[in-house]
Every structure is written in structure tokens, then in C-alpha cells.
């Protein structure tokens, strides 16, 4: 895996695919044209559109808007999810009372919530932050709660026998264990945050990549739609890669992190 021949084979496959696409869309010779480029676009058209997006339309600004919304939602989701997770783990009264309500809320598909959220918060960034938060919060909350409950009871017994205070047990055992669960779910959380932000932009916004997608669709700019999907794909891949790096750094003590 990852050897030069594998990379070479992948590169050849990708090049062949792009050539085939370009040819079928009539970009190499008109007689080869089998697809209507209005629907299929083509690699060269997309490349041209990407140039326009980056150097004439300043798409980077929209990318940053979407990332900003996603990260705000992520940060708030982590903070509130950990807080409620701790509360659930420490109080049986709270957890047994609230459990069914949280499950019910979490079972709402978030896109269904988007119009209402726009109605509450308007078409600015707050509605997108809320939607991103509404997904991340539950992921982090469940991870925290399960993380605490899955702590080896013998570790807690060791702390007790050593005479550790509640605060020491919290600092030495509970919080590191919660942190490890959160970082293990970080990749998932950042993708969810991005999804939440983009859904919000679909429903009502004045900036962001989701807004640009809806805008291009409205004007039937098919090349631009392809180019934007490409941009969003790169965005997603980048944040997931960054999250993976952070995970790898912070969870060095783990045997292996596979997801």
C-alpha cells in the first residue's frame, strides 16, 4: 500500500477518466461528443470556472464564511455537549428524566429543522451556527456520556484506595478519558458541522458555499455547480485531514485509531 506503483496506477486511472469525460463532452473532437455539456460539463470547463471563482468572484470569502460557521458550531457543540454529558454521568436523576427527550430531539433529521431555524435566527450566520451546533452537540454529548460510563471501574477503585479527592479523580481520570472520546470523534464532528452550515445556507443566506450553490442552480450555471461541488469536496477533505492529524497527535497513547 502507498508504494509508487500504486500511486502511478491511480494517476493513470484518474487521467484516463478525465480524458474520457472530456472526450465524451466533445472537448477533444466534435465527432466524439456523446454527452450534452450543459448537463455533463467537462474537466476543461470546470477548470475554467474554478479560475473565475477564485480570481474574479472571490469564492475564498464564501469558503471562509462557511468554515467560520462550521467551526463556531463545532466549538459550541463540544463545550455544551461535554457539559451535559458530565451532568448526565454524575446525576442519575437528570439522565433518567431527560434521556427520552434528547433521543427524540436527536432523531429529527436536521434539514427538516432548517426553515424553522432560519425563521428564528434570520438569514445571517447565527442560523448556520445553530444548525452545525445541533448536530455536533448530540455527537459530543453521547460520546462524553458513554466515555465516562466506560471508564474501567478498577481505575476508579485505584483512585479511591489512593485517597484521591473528587476533584483529583475528575482531573486525572474523567476529563482525559472524555477528551480522548471527543478527539476520537473529531473527524465525524467536523464533517457534521460542515453539513449543518451548508444546509442552513441552502435554506436562506447571503454568503457561503451553500449559498453560492443555490445561486448557481437558480441561474442554470451548470459548470459553476460542478466547480463548487469540487471546492466543497476539497474543503471537506482538508478539515477531515486536519482533524485526523490532531487526533493522531493527541491520542498517541492509543494502540491504533481506526475509523
Amino acid at each position: 500500500m502507498g508504494s509508487w506503483t500504486v500511486h502511478a496506477r491511480r494517476l493513470i486511472f484518474l487521467t484516463a477518466l478525465l480524458f474520457l469525460w472530456e472526450a465524451l463532452a466533445g472537448g477533444l473532437h466534435p465527432s466524439l461528443s456523446l454527452l450534452d455539456p450543459f448537463y455533463s460539463s467537462s474537466p476543461s470547463r470546470i477548470a475554467r470556472e474554478l479560475y473565475v471563482l477564485f480570481f474574479q468572484e472571490n469564492i475564498l470569502k464564501d469558503v471562509l464564511v462557511t468554515l467560520g460557521e462550521a467551526f463556531s458550531g463545532l466549538a459550541m457543540g463540544i463545550a455544551s455537549g461535554v457539559a451535559l454529558g458530565l451532568l448526565f454521568a454524575y446525576s442519575d436523576t437528570v439522565s433518567s428524566t431527560l434521556e427520552p427527550f434528547l433521543s427524540a430531539l436527536n432523531s429529527i433529521p436536521r434539514p427538516a429543522l432548517a426553515p424553522l431555524v432560519i425563521f428564528w435566527f434570520g438569514i445571517g450566520i447565527f442560523s448556520k451556527i445553530f444548525l452545525a451546533w445541533s448536530i455536533v452537540f448530540f455527537v459530543i454529548f453521547y460520546n462524553t456520556y458513554l466515555g465516562i460510563r466506560s471508564i474501567d471501574p478498577d481505575i476508579l477503585n485505584v483512585m479511591r484506595v489512593m485517597g484521591a479527592s473528587r476533584l483529583q479523580t475528575m482531573r486525572i481520570v474523567i476529563l482525559p478519558s472524555v477528551a480522548s472520546w471527543i478527539f476520537a470523534g473529531l473527524r465525524l464532528s467536523v464533517s457534521y458541522a460542515l453539513i449543518g452550515a451548508i444546509i442552513g445556507e441552502f435554506v436562506g443566506a447571503t454568503a457561503g458555499v451553500g449559498y453560492q450553490l443555490i445561486y448557481a442552480e437558480g441561474l442554470l450555471m451548470s459548470d459553476r455547480l460542478y466547480a463548487l461541488v469540487f471546492v466543497v469536496g476539497i474543503m471537506g477533505a482538508t478539515v477531515v485531514e486536519v482533524a485526523k492529524r490532531i487526533e493522531g497527535k493527541l491520542l498517541r497513547w492509543r494502540p491504533e485509531v481506526t475509523l
Binding site: V158, I172, W253
Partner: peptide
């Protein structure tokens, strides 16, 4: 089962009681 803290190094684990 050893009940070591997996996120702590071996030396930090041994020093746990002293830390407390």
C-alpha cells in the same frame, strides 16, 4: 487487570499515588 491509565506514561502511572 492492571487498571493502568492508558493515557499516562508508565512512569506517570507509577507516580500516581504520589501525585494524589
Amino acid at each position: 487487570r492492571d487498571a493502568l491509565l492508558p493515557w499516562r506514561t508508565v512512569a506517570e502511572n507509577v507516580a500516581l499515588g504520589l501525585e494524589v
